[in-house]
Simulated assay, not measured.
Amino acid sequence: MFSKPIPGRTTAAARGDVVVLLIGMRINHFWGVHHWLPVFLAMPRMLRELSKDPSRGLLGHTLLSGSPRTYYVVQYWESKEKLYAYAKAPDMFHRKAWARLNRAEKKSRQHVGLWHESYVVPEGGYENIYADMPPYGLGKALGVLPIEQRGRSAKERFAHRSRA
């Protein structure tokens, strides 16, 4: 299941704007397992749901841990409109999970914290480099190119513009 490293230096094959969602949870009280475990298990279920239907707009994701208490996902989306549509779709699990959490809000929120940050990063506002890495992050979501196609320096990669 592990990807092999790509020798040398590559950069993400991103074109245009990039939509990034950071979303996570913090376990405030470990003993409240029955409050935070459903939240913890909801994200993998949503990611599986989205991976089965690429038309929903999720391009890729990376699961991360900030500490034994904090877990989050970096997600890359086709557009903010597709991100909004998924969040509000009555037939998708996110809506059901959010409704369940809100019903139990007073008790659950004491045990688990939630957060998200969304960004639309315009072309020219991002750059990246992967050295002897398997596809990762934005490069995994959108594919990679040899570094020479975008520029050897960060300044050159920031200045790159896709051609229409």
Rank of each mutant, 00 (worst) to 15 (best):
P90G: 10
P134Y: 02
V120P: 06
Y76R: 09
R9C: 00
S108T: 10
G66C: 05
P38I: 10
Y130K: 04
A42F: 00
G66S: 05
F158Q: 12
I23C: 06
V20N: 09
N28Y: 04
W115V: 09
E127T: 10
V74C: 08
R161A: 02
Q110G: 09
W115R: 11
E156V: 01
E117I: 09
G66N: 07
H116N: 14
S51D: 11
Q75T: 13
F2W: 07
D132Q: 09
T11F: 02
R109F: 15
R161S: 08
R45V: 11
M25W: 04
R45K: 14
A89F: 03
H94M: 13
W31F: 08
Y136N: 03
R163Y: 00
S153C: 08
N102V: 10
H111A: 10
A131I: 14
H29I: 13
Y130E: 03
T11I: 05
P7T: 00
A14G: 01
K107P: 06
I27L: 04
L145P: 06
K155A: 15
P90W: 01
S55T: 15
D53Q: 13
G60S: 13
Y72Q: 03
M43P: 06
D132F: 02
G8C: 04
G113R: 04
A141L: 09
R100N: 05
L101I: 03
G137F: 01
F158P: 04
S67T: 08
